[in-house]
Amino acid sequence: MAVYTEVSQSDLENLLQDFQLGQLISFKGIDGGIENTNYFVTLCGEDQQESEYVLTLFEDLNQDEMPYFVELTTWLADRGCPVPFPFKDSNGIGLKTLHNRPALLQPRLPGNHIEALTAEHCQQIGAALGQFHQAGRDFYLQRQAHRGVFWWRRESQQIASKLSTEDAQLLRTEVTLFEQLREQPWNLPQGAIHGDLFHDNALFQEDKLSAILDIYNACTGYLLYDLAIVANDWCVNPDGSIDPQREQALLTAYDQVRPFEENEYLAWPQLVRTAAMRFWLSRLIPALDPNTTQKIKDPEEFRRILLQRIATPAALP
Results as ranks from 00 to 15, higher is better:
41 V>K: 07
47 D>V: 04
200 D>V: 07
99 H>V: 03
46 E>P: 00
237 N>I: 03
73 T>C: 14
120 E>W: 15
302 F>E: 02
291 N>S: 04
207 D>M: 14
195 G>C: 03
87 F>N: 02
116 A>N: 14
217 N>M: 13
172 R>E: 06
267 A>C: 04
223 L>G: 09
92 G>N: 07
163 L>G: 03
144 Q>H: 10
189 P>H: 14
139 F>N: 01
7 V>D: 04
112 N>I: 09
156 S>W: 08
283 R>E: 02
215 I>P: 05
292 T>H: 11
43 L>W: 06
25 I>V: 15
53 Y>G: 00
9 Q>E: 13
201 N>W: 06
297 K>F: 10
223 L>C: 11
97 T>Y: 14
204 F>K: 02
5 T>Q: 05
47 D>K: 10
48 Q>M: 05
6 E>Y: 08
46 E>T: 05
98 L>S: 06
171 L>D: 00
129 L>M: 08
99 H>Y: 07
87 F>P: 00
178 F>P: 01
13 E>Y: 04
141 L>N: 01
184 Q>H: 09
217 N>A: 14
37 T>Q: 04
304 R>C: 05
205 Q>D: 09
90 S>T: 07
296 I>C: 10
211 A>H: 04
97 T>L: 15
146 H>N: 11
302 F>C: 09
277 M>R: 06
252 T>M: 10
293 T>I: 10
145 A>N: 05
25 I>E: 08
67 P>T: 04
270 Q>E: 06
313 P>V: 14
303 R>Y: 07
230 V>G: 04
46 E>R: 13
207 D>E: 13
95 L>H: 08
288 L>G: 02
15 L>N: 02
233 D>W: 03
68 Y>F: 13
289 D>N: 06
235 C>H: 03
23 Q>H: 14
46 E>G: 09
273 R>Q: 03
257 V>P: 01
290 P>C: 10
152 W>T: 01
183 E>T: 02
125 I>Q: 04
127 A>K: 10
67 P>R: 09
84 P>R: 11
146 H>R: 14
273 R>G: 01
84 P>L: 11
102 P>Y: 12
89 D>N: 12
278 R>K: 14
28 K>M: 12
47 D>W: 07
106 Q>Y: 08
35 E>T: 02
50 E>G: 04
174 E>C: 09
217 N>H: 15
250 L>G: 06
142 Q>H: 12
107 P>H: 11
105 L>W: 06
228 A>P: 00
90 S>N: 07
282 S>R: 05
40 F>W: 05
314 A>W: 09
284 L>G: 06
20 Q>S: 12
36 N>H: 08
310 I>C: 10
224 L>R: 05
152 W>L: 10
191 G>E: 03
49 Q>C: 12
64 D>K: 12
284 L>F: 10
24 L>K: 06
305 I>Q: 01
279 F>G: 08
230 V>K: 08
139 F>M: 03
174 E>P: 01
84 P>M: 11
283 R>I: 01
194 H>G: 07
204 F>E: 02
116 A>L: 15
17 Q>Y: 13
287 A>W: 09
180 Q>E: 08
20 Q>V: 06
127 A>M: 07
316 L>D: 00
283 R>G: 05
231 A>Q: 02
91 N>W: 13
